[in-house]
Amino acid sequence: MKTPPAPARTLPAIDNDNRAYWTGGEHGRLMICRCGHCGYYVHPPVPFCPQCESSDVAPEPVSGRGRIASFTVNHKVWVPGLAAPYVLALVALDEQEDVRLVCNITHCDPDAVRFDMPVVVWFENHEDLWVPFFRPVEQAA
Rank of each mutant, 00 (worst) to 15 (best):
F133L: 11
D109M: 09
D109F: 06
P132G: 11
L88K: 14
C38A: 04
V102I: 01
G28A: 00
V121N: 04
R9W: 04
C35P: 03
Y41W: 01
D111N: 13
L30A: 03
R100A: 05
A13H: 12
C52R: 04
R67W: 13
L30C: 02
F48I: 01
V113H: 11
Q139I: 06
P5D: 15
R114S: 15
G39W: 10
D94R: 06
I68Q: 15
E138P: 06
R29Y: 04
V99G: 01
D128C: 15
N16C: 13
R67Y: 12
V62F: 06
Q51K: 04
T106I: 14
V120L: 00
V73K: 03
A20G: 08
A83Q: 08
C103Q: 05
V42A: 01
V46T: 02
S54P: 00
T10F: 10
V46E: 00
D128A: 14
H126D: 12
A84V: 06
D109N: 10
R114Q: 15
P132K: 12
D116W: 12
C52T: 04
P47I: 05
M31V: 12
L129T: 14
Y86E: 09
S70N: 15
G64Y: 06
A6I: 14
L88H: 14
F123D: 09
L30K: 02
L11M: 08
A20F: 11
M1Y: 10
N16A: 14
F115N: 14
D56Q: 10
N104E: 13
R34S: 05
P80W: 00
K2M: 09
D109G: 04
I32E: 02
A20Q: 13
G64T: 01
L90I: 12
Q96I: 01
Q96C: 02
F133P: 03
Y86T: 01
R19Q: 09
F71E: 11
M31N: 07
R29T: 04
V137K: 08
P44M: 02
H27S: 08
N18H: 09
G81C: 08
G81M: 11
V102P: 00
G64E: 04
Y40A: 09
R65G: 01
S55F: 12
W122G: 00
A141N: 15
H107L: 06
N104L: 07
R67G: 09
G66L: 13
N125T: 12
G25R: 11
D116M: 13
R29C: 06
G39T: 06
S70C: 15
G64R: 03
R65A: 01
H27R: 08
F48W: 01
E127S: 15
A6Q: 11
P61A: 00
P47Y: 07
V99L: 01
E95M: 04
M117Q: 14
V121L: 05
